[in-house]
Design a protein around this nucleic acid. Structure first.
Lengths: 332, 332
DNA sequence: CATGGCGTTCACAACGTTGTAGAACGTGCC
DNA sequence: GGCACGTTCTACAACGTTGTGAACGCCATG
């Protein structure tokens, strides 16, 4: 069977609390006693019961990461970085997929499971602005993304508007004037789609151009299929365009596939810029120019903020926007 | 503060054990009592403390999934499916990344964290055959992949040899005779690389062809960069080849990128087949023909096997090989 | 009317840990 | 020699839950 503090204590001839003190590096333990206890721990291969420790101390050493879908490369790479950042702090990560479903996201915020973890990193995609009060929960929480802001809740975000404006300006600077947007969500204001559209619009207006509605390629989901579909519709509509700014890399790759399949050359006929700097864009054909939103910095900052929040619930709220950059490759 | 069984009991005017009975659907509770308790639970927004439940019952409802890296699309999609399969059974998943590091994998098998989870799904990449006895652990365990087999440990695997043979035969059937392998691990026998090489060799030999060592593209890591490097080396070596069988999609995409960059047309000059059927191959340019190793079936079967094992430690060992298929797209 | 049995409820004891309080044991100082 | 103090160790009581077994009330039965 599995050894407990009591078993170790019996073998070492001390009280079980002394063993606990050794395990927790309590200073006032005589070196000889400590050595005897450590020896017994080795002999019995003792390992603390984390459920008991968690019950008693209220800390589990587990963070929860809630995101839409792990199969989306952006989130897979984000989760990768979050797990690494957590591990550097001795924490492990439990992952929940919400499938961009509002109900699942709402339920998550009041789930019993939440009380088993020390904190939650939450990247919502389904929550609506009117749900904002739901994020006032007892569990330490750091929000990721742009969907929901609450002045009293820690937040880490990328600079969507600024980065999208920079990407569009980058295309304008290369002489492109008919820039299509792929991934448009009509009417959306606060989500990634809304914000990136705003950056796109600001850049165009800054160059004295108006947004041409015919160049807005709607794509509800940001998967490859939708990117390809949006590009195909743009082509079929007959409207002229010489560049595509896609709201993420996955859309961009889908769009690029459709463009190439229809005989358009990238970047000669149509330049393509993505968003996210996921691995898949590095070796696509052609390699994808994209916005690096600072994913690694987001993960690191998010975990850091959450750990701070766990340590001190009354610390001032931290809301951070991470720096971005444009990664130039072959598609422009 | 957070409500406990005792708080609910006090409000409902029953003993806390009766509340526990209601929560756990114990049958002999009078309907009127049950209703009163449920009402109190709603009033106080009671949620069970999972740490306490876990301590007392020995069950946490958490599975651990240990894999090399989440940023590799194969593992991201596997994790996605595992999380879904676990969720269908009311379980959540904690993810550990081992970075294909043997020491991390060994440590994981004796980690204290393991005692906090109900079971472990483990996809090793660093363990050596001589480490095989290390997988005899107390925690319910299901191994994934081909790296380590133990006759007494549950296992779910894809049919590497058969699938690689089928993929190579597929190229042979289309008239390709100079088929390069990308992702070769010299001397390896039991890993994915070794097994897929074996399938490749068997197919060639079945067609009366010998393995040409000059066509074996070494790639220690199966990332895009290594696939591109291996293809570049094959090109630079001057050896003739009209097809590439890559040990995974990521390598295949990297190789395809290098081939196209060097002016070779895919599939006209060189046909390319990958392995894994990850999303990224669907909309690559050209879309990638690949082996679908049955990832979803693997995840479902792995979780099912683990749940069975948790329920009955003495049940007969299950070792399952999941069916595969070849998905034909544009690269062949 | 006593008895047995069933449905319902409860008291108690774990599970393995950490926090608190204090006991035992020197050691140094007056 | 007595006292104060610091070090080292321990006893006890939680943390919130579930399993065991016994007690209770009620009804049917003899």
């Amino acid at each position: 069977m599995v050894a407990t503090l009591h078993d170790v204590a019996r073998l070492a001839g001390v009280s079980f609390k002394t063993v606990s003190n050794v395990v927790n590096d309590y200073p006032h333990v005589r070196p000889s006693t400590r050595e005897r206890v450590l020896e017994a721990i080795r002999t019995l291969d003792y390992q603390p019961n984390l459920s008991a420790r968690s019950l008693r101390s209220g800390r589990s050493g587990v963070l929860s990461l809630a995101l839409p879908e792990l199969r989306l490369p952006y989130f897979a790479e984000l989760a990768d970085e979050v797990i690494r950042a957590a591990e550097r702090r001795g924490l492990v990560v439990l992952i929940e997929q919400t499938n961009r479903d509002r109900k699942r996201e709402v339920d998550l915020l009041s789930s019993a499971r939440l009380r088993m973890v020390d904190g939650l990193l939450f990247s919502p995609l389904g929550l609506e602005p009117e749900d904002v009060e739901l994020v006032r929960i007892d569990t330490p929480l750091v929000l990721l993304g742009e969907r929901v802001f609450h002045p009293a809740v820690d937040h880490v975000t990328m600079q969507n508007v600024e980065a999208a404006r920079a990407a569009t300006e980058y295309l304008l600077a290369r002489g492109r004037r008919r820039i299509a947007l792929v991934g448009y969500h009509p009417g959306e204001v606060i989500g990634s789609a809304g914000l990136r559209f705003r950056g796109y619009r600001e850049a165009l207006e800054g160059a004295g151009l108006a947004v041409d509605e015919r160049l807005l390629g709607v794509a509800e989901l940001w998967h490859r299929q939708q990117g390809a579909d949006a590009a195909t519709q743009l082509l079929d509509s007959g409207v002229h365009f010489d560049a595509v700014f896609a709201c993420n890399d996955t859309l961009a790759l889908g769009a690029m596939h459709a463009l190439t399949g229809a005989g358009r050359r990238v970047p000669d006929d149509v330049a393509v810029v993505g968003f996210d700097n996921t691995d898949e864009g590095v070796y696509s054909q052609p390699a994808l120019t994209t916005v690096d939103p600072g994913r690694r910095g987001i993960a690191e900052c998010a975990v850091d903020t959450l750990v701070q929040r766990i340590a001190d619930r009354t610390a001032p709220v931290r809301q951070t926007a991470i720096d971005f950059s444009i990664v130039q490759r072959e598609s422009t």
